[in-house]
Each structure stands twice: as C-alpha cells, then as structure tokens.
Amino acid sequence: MATWAYPPLPPDRLNREADSALARELQWLLQSLQESLASLKEGLSECAALLAPQEPGSTLVLSSIRSESVKGFVTRVGTKLVKGDVQLRLQSLPPPRGSPSTRLTLSQSPESPDLVLQQLVSVRNLVNQSLDIIDVSTYTGDPHDAGFIFSQLHLLHETISEARQMLKGDGDVRGNWWETSVSDDMFDSPPPSNLSFHLSIADSALILLVRTLESNAIAQAPTAFASDISLTGFSLRDRLFGSRHKAHDEAGDVFKWKGEEVHVREKVRVESQDPSLMSVMAKLTALEHEVMRWVSALKVLMGNDDTESEP
C-alpha cells in the first residue's frame, strides 16, 4: 500500500489515513471470508461423503506385478473392508495338500470382528472436526473479529493438514505390522501361524504387505550341513562370490510377533489405487492451500509478524 499523497499530508495524519485504509481492507477481507467458509464447508462435505459407508463400495484388485505371489481382491465400504479373497503363492509358504496356493477369505459371519482401516477412521474424524471448526467460525463468536477468525483458520489448516498426512501415510500413522496385522479370527479359516497379513493406506492407495516369518532361534541355529559355517569367522561363500544381497529391506531384523522373536523370511508388497481416496486427497490438498492463503492474507492485514503463528 502506498503511503504518500499529494498535496503532502502531515506525518501523523498520513499514518492515521494508512491505518484507516488497512482497517477497511481487513473488514472487507473478513466479510469475504464468510463466503469462502461456505465454499470450504462444501468441499469438506464432499470428502465426508466419499468416506461414508455407501453400498456397493469400492472393489480393489490386489495382485502382485509380474508374479503369481498374490492374486485377489477386497471390497471397501466406508472405513471397513467387508469382503476379501486372496490367493498366496510364496516360496516360504507351502500350500495345503491338494491346493496350488494358500487362500485367505475374509469371514462373512456376523460373529467375526470388522476389519477396520484405522487411518480412514482418523481421516473421517478429522474431516468432521474441520466441519465443526467452520460452523464455530460461522455461527459462534464475532465473524468481524480478526483475531478470532485468524485462530479458527489456523486451527482449520492444522486439522486439514493432519487429515491429508494421515491419508498419505506419512510417519508412523500406518502402524507397526507386528502389532496391527489382520487377526486370525477375521478369516474363514485361520491363516498359517507364520503369516502376517498387514493392510494400510499410503498415497491414497490400499497397501497389502504379506510376510512369512521364522523363529529367530531356529534361524540362528547352525546345522551340520550348513554351507556357510566357518570356524574362523569368515565365510568361504562370501570370499568366493561376495556377500549375498538382502532378499528384502527387513532381512536380518528381529521383531516381536505373538510373544516370540522372529525374522522375516519373505515379504511381498501389493498396492491398489482407490479412486475415491484419490479424490479425497486431491480435495484436501486444494482446501489446505486455500486456507493457508486466507491465513497469510489475514496475517498481513493484521500486521502480525509472529512467525510462530504461521501454518
């Protein structure tokens, strides 16, 4: 904003005129925000609808690329998986006698627990909290109070950002597989005891990680026919051919699984893009940027230079 005028004004009057113009611009922005809040609420309501339990739900294919390791599908309704049928063909998982693969089918029994995707529950709750923040900003307090609206928008930005990060699967929001794998009683027939079936959300896709496990005590026990036994501490195999590449990124790590220390023998990752979740992610990203834009504009007009208040 220009701070000069012709004919020249006394400095004190010039400052008063500048402050008055800034105050009018701030009030105009606060008035405009009421319409923007209605638009933000509409976008969040669309996200809530996409996360709501609506039949017939979304059927997602779970199949490994360029292999027969994993073949199957699941059906998501809201935050739950209500159907699922997956065939596994893993080198470290011998199939039942007379069958070419190990089959896992989600139970349809009313007594079986629901397979709930906790990340989607968190996203849905955060979207609902964002809608509540907008209602408070619209119907509670003074909509012309810049400090009140600024704090509400700041809170709204943080809530939407958390929902987007939860859907993206950043950090540890996906849970530890040894604690949050699908429990045995969710399947028609209990899976093998050395099998972990873990589901999560990352980048708006459903991620399935299948792991076959082996007791750490068994894995460390040497046998008389082990080809890499060395009494000197140096392996002849490693000397001749070099060290072997790790089969996966968790090779050599030890985990606590059902009260026992285990290591992962085989690990297969499969992802299936969910169009509804992709739409939610796109909407949340756009809404987050829009709220940040309004927060920045308010900050400038309020003369707030406190960097700690930046979203």
Rank of each mutant, 00 (worst) to 15 (best):
D170Q: 09
G43N: 03
R16S: 15
S122E: 14
K246N: 12
F187K: 02
N176G: 03
K168M: 15
G98R: 09
S183F: 05
F234C: 07
V254N: 12
V254E: 15
L62P: 01
V268E: 11
T285K: 10
F255R: 01
P53W: 09
E260R: 08
E271P: 00
Q54P: 04
S193Q: 15
V70Q: 00
S227C: 13
H144S: 15
E35R: 13
G252R: 08
S200D: 03
D305Y: 12
L50G: 01
H289Y: 12
N304R: 05
F187P: 02
I201T: 02
P222Y: 10
D85A: 00
E68D: 15
M302L: 05
M278Y: 09
P95I: 05
L206H: 00
D184Q: 04
D170G: 13
W177F: 09
P8M: 06
L131F: 01
E308C: 04
E250R: 11
S193F: 09
V268K: 04
V264A: 00
Y6H: 15
V268P: 02
F234H: 15
I229Y: 13
D12L: 11
W4Q: 05
M302C: 02
K256L: 10
R269V: 09
L60T: 00
L195M: 12
L104Q: 04
L37F: 10
V127W: 05
D203A: 08
L26F: 12
M292L: 09
K41G: 15
T59S: 06
V270P: 01
R211Q: 01
I160H: 03
V264I: 11
L199P: 01
I201K: 00
S196D: 07
P95T: 03
L195Y: 08
S276W: 02
E179W: 10
A205G: 12
Q54K: 07
A282T: 10
L40G: 00
G252S: 06
L284I: 12
D238G: 04
D238C: 02
I218G: 03
E288Y: 10
R97V: 14
D228F: 10
H157A: 15
F234I: 10
L301K: 15
E271K: 05
S32Q: 15
V136Y: 06
K168D: 13
Q273V: 14
T223K: 13
T105W: 06
F148W: 07
D185P: 02
R293L: 06
R24Q: 15
S235R: 05
T75P: 06
G303L: 14
E260V: 01
V210S: 00
I207E: 05
S67P: 08
A146K: 06
F241N: 12
M1W: 12
P100W: 09
L29V: 13
K256S: 08
S67E: 14
K299F: 11
L117C: 09
T180G: 01
P10Y: 13
E46A: 07
P275A: 08
A221N: 13
V77A: 06
S151Q: 15
S36Y: 10
V70I: 13
L195S: 01
F225P: 08
S183G: 09
S112D: 07
S276V: 05
V173A: 08
V82P: 01
M278A: 10
S227T: 01
L277D: 02
P190E: 14
L153E: 08
S230Q: 03
L14R: 12
G57A: 11
L156I: 04
K258M: 11
F73T: 04
S200W: 00
P191E: 02
D188Q: 04
L106Q: 03
F255S: 02
L167G: 01
L50E: 03
V173Q: 03
R174T: 13
